[in-house]
Design a binder for these strands. Structure first.
Lengths: 271, 271
DNA sequence: CGATACGTTGATCCATTTCAAGATTGGTGG
DNA sequence: CCACCAATCTTGAAATGGATCAACGTATCG
């Protein structure tokens, strides 16, 4: 269910970052240290309009021409592809993800962008992004970097599909989402809210919903993680990450980009 | 086995594109129509040095700091990750692929870049790419686009892992590589040269080498494709693509970028 | 001509799918 | 507040794809 547009100043919710109500999570995650305050303001300024959805809604459909890109402000989204009657989830997004920034360069996506549960998104016109690309090469590289992070996550997904059985895949997915939510301050000691259904998880792990149900139970009884009613609870995080063979390096968690910024490419570092 | 550096003018081989001996395939594939002759020359000018390998060689190792990116000029490469003693192939590259351009923005990759069989590569210093990013926003967007194509291919890989059994995965891989080789003029009516071993294919399809052997045989006896001695032969391409559930749209084959270029982002198109 | 990488085969075991139901939950109107 | 509905979740039994272990063939090349 669509909930309609909001005026730009509709700050009806306490945010941790008052100056950047729409992009606060984005700036918080992996970008902050690499950006000047001016650049952070410029990113916030890209977004003129935001929208809430209380229910699943397709923001951008496969093949559709796009002239704006979407910031996920609250809630979750998936990238999905419908093929031969089956739905496949090829990516999951958390708040602070500039979810279809790649549409700026591609113009048409090969998949749908769909909200899950209750969400809030903001839009940046490609016209505005174009101005950044013309005027600020450093910020351009940072945006480019943001689209490449998705690539790193996708490669990890390919690997986990090649490597892990269904229970490991689910554990890996949970471990990854937890780490990503943590980066934007949306988890606590015991877990996090997570509205995906078992059918959604099955579509993301390449199993049937029936098998996913057994796997969810298996992880629950094995005390690895408890997924129920829109929430994930974990007793022992190390145990979860071991079951998942999870190593979060690929998420470039802390300062990877800051390091890039420090390099000063005009005088490139020697390996 | 490394074969040593070559002087820039070492044009000891008849190329279809005399003006762009190193980047001819890159320009040929999906980029050509979007680039001016001047831009094409600028891309060629990025590469000052090339190198041949007669054997498997790791161009860039996981986590290693990179100050240049690699164009694959001849032969094949894989992106692979070694984990818990097992090797996982998360991408395959064909001539004309700017294989680790994303290292320009990321600086460190999460995987190895490895040549397969006899290859030739060329290197672009990030310093030179940086100049392009500063001076030519249009060309920047084209390079950005090139890194996003890898993302589209990766999403398709995720989907095929979620969706297809081992024989379909192999057929899909073959169909994809054929299409990509075709775009750069490196296939013929009956198939193409392809040096990956059954073990390599197993690593790319997430099966064991033993099972891959049976799958290769199965596709052979089913007259879908015949993979042997470094060559893939196909009788009936439609049959192959059906067995693979293959639809090449995600490769943005023909004119996708040209369309983007035509859009003139200063006055964005309305969907 | 022996080493080494690559390909082939058979038997057994386990993960996952499929088909067919049934139980629980949250939300709805009466 | 209850009855009901639809989505979500749960369970069982039979069939199958793929892994694993243990060999054995066969190219190719110095």
């Amino acid at each position: 269910m669509r909930m309609g547009h909001e005026p730009r100043e509709g700050g009806n919710r306490l945010m941790s970052d008052q100056r950047h109500p729409l992009t606060g999570q984005f700036l918080k995650s992996r970008m902050r240290d690499a950006m000047t305050p001016r650049q952070q303001d410029a990113v916030e300024g890209l977004f003129q309009e935001s929208e809430r959805f209380s229910d699943s809604h397709t923001i951008l459909r496969r093949g559709q021409l796009a002239n704006r890109s979407t910031m996920l402000v609250e809630g979750f989204m998936v990238r999905s592809i419908e093929e031969r009657g089956k739905r496949h989830v090829v990516g999951i997004h958390v708040p602070g993800d500039f979810v279809d920034l790649h549409a700026y360069a591609l113009k048409r996506l090969d998949h749908d962008m769909v909200t899950v549960g209750s969400t809030r998104v903001a839009y940046a016109e490609h016209e505005a992004i174009e101005r950044v690309v013309r005027d600020d090469p450093d910020l351009t590289r940072i945006l480019w970097f943001a689209t490449l992070l998705d690539g790193a996550i996708q490669r990890e997904w390919i690997m986990k599909m090649e490597q892990l059985p269904a229970d490991g895949r689910l554990a890996h997915l949970i471990a990854e989402i937890w780490t990503r939510l943590e980066m934007v301050g949306l988890s606590d000691q015991h877990g996090f809210g997570f509205p995906l259904t078992q059918a959604d998880l099955a579509d993301a792990c390449g199993t049937t919903a029936i098998h996913m149900n057994r796997i969810v139970r298996k992880l629950r009884t094995a005390n690895i993680c408890d997924i129920r009613r829109g929430r994930v609870s974990v007793d022992d995080r190390a145990r979860l990450e071991e079951a998942a063979s999870f190593n979060g390096d690929y998420l470039f968690g802390h300062g990877a980009l800051a390091e890039v910024a420090d390099l000063d490419l005009a005088r490139p570092a020697r390996a």
